[in-house]
Amino acid sequence: MSKRIDVADLNVYYGNFLAVEDVNINIDAKTVTAFIGPSGCGKSTFLRTLNRMHEVIPGARVEGKVMLDGDNLYGSGVDPVTVRSQIGMVFQRPNPFPTMSIRDNVLAGIKLNNKRISKSDADGIVESSLQGANLWNEVKDRLDKPGSGLSGGQQQRLCIARTIAVKPEVILMDEPCSALDPISTLAIEDLINELKNDYTVVIVTHNMQQAARVSDKTAFFNIAGTGKPGKLIEYAETATIFSNPSVKATEDYVSGRFG
């Protein structure tokens, strides 16, 4: 498990509007990479192009290459469904399926990808996924209760459990803590540190302290002005970005002078 991602000359358009311009970035396997930048700079948009979730938005399209261990996600004949089963995603707001129990939520992706599994296999996957998301001890006695009855932080960890249950190569997280309280945020951050052992993790965050705490490398995105495309300004080791960035705009942003 876990593969590297190499992006070459990527442009993202909404209709004719160029939203993100010319991104080149190499993300190593089994690392945590954080995308930071002011609102509207295209970091979430760019994240979505890494598993083709941007295609859900009408008019959104991409030029360029995204390679997953050398295989182009946008090659002809590549099915976005296959891409997404290998590159999972956790969203800004926790979104467990409200009509499903906790157990069924964890198994939702499995049941899609290879329909039939024995009950004992299913039990094993439910336990290991929930363990992997640091949620097992809190919910093991109520697996048949609805997932929507959990707290926000628990729901978000349930969504992570659901994502890792399908054993993806990469996990994308789009501001996974922005709707959570500090304690739940800490639980998710601890979890991200553990996920790194098995998965490549890419996380978009508005919280610079969070980026500093969880990531190995950080990418700073910025936008020149309204109506201009977002760009990748600087990408380096997290320590470098926060202590000794090479671009003035990065320094201004991480030191809180704007954004």
Partner: peptide, 19 residues
């Protein structure tokens, strides 16, 4: 949110509708 949750798990259009 729920539609995207299904798609992000690798659901096809029909599976997304079903789930």
């Amino acid at each position: 949110l729920h539609e995207e949750a299904a798609l992000a798990l690798g659901a096809t259009r029909w599976e997304m509708v079903r789930v």
